[in-house]
């Protein structure tokens, strides 16, 4: 399947991926409105990890055998036909089990009062995930690399 990959050698640590991830999942999808007028804007599904000059953007790997899906107590998490691991927000009860079992730490709690998780959904519906299209240095790519 097509996945998002980080090329840490070109990550400049600007965190534009995080910023645009939020925009991509916001109501208005307009950056200024999202940040200025949406107090309940979503949390980013991607995080830049940094240690000295090393940095890279990280989000859900959409594992072939996702432990989060196995562990989900309500069936909110599932893997669809394309292989994308998605969360049905209506079913999520915020038990955080998935967060504890994810080997990568790729699942976050939603911002604010909402007791839900957030995770990368590959910006389904968009031609390319927001973090990929807005990376200024092609340090995040969305491509088919075959079996890992």
């Amino acid at each position: 399947m097509k996945r998002i990959y980080a090329r840490e050698e070109y990550c400049v640590g600007c965190r534009l991926c995080e910023i645009f991830c939020v925009v991509g999942h916001s109501k208005s999808k307009d950056i200024i409105k999202t940040y200025k007028k949406e107090p309940d804007r979503p949390a980013p599904r991607v995080a830049v990890w940094e240690d000295g000059p090393l940095s890279f953007a990280f989000q859900c790997r959409h594992c072939d055998q996702p432990s989060c899906v196995e562990a989900c107590i309500t069936g909110a998490l599932s893997k669809n036909e394309e292989g994308t691991v998605l969360c049905n927000e209506d079913k999520c009860v915020g038990c955080w089990t998935c967060i504890t079992v994810c080997p990568f730490g790729a699942i976050q709690r939603e911002e604010g009062e909402k007791k839900k998780i957030v995770k990368c959904n590959l910006c389904s519906g968009e031609p390319e995930p927001y973090c990929v299209s807005h990376c200024p240095n092609r340090a995040i790519v969305y491509e088919e690399r075959g079996v890992e």
């Binding site: 050698e9 070109y10 990550c11 400049v12 640590g13 000295g52 000059p53 940095s55 240095n137 092609r138 340090a139």
Partner: peptide, 18 residues
């Protein structure tokens, strides 16, 4: 811009492919 530098966190700003 990662061009006239040898600092690793700056050098990587120039993606040779781009």
């Amino acid at each position: 811009w990662g061009i006239a530098t040898q600092q690793p966190h700056l050098v990587k700003r120039l993606n040779p492919e781009i």
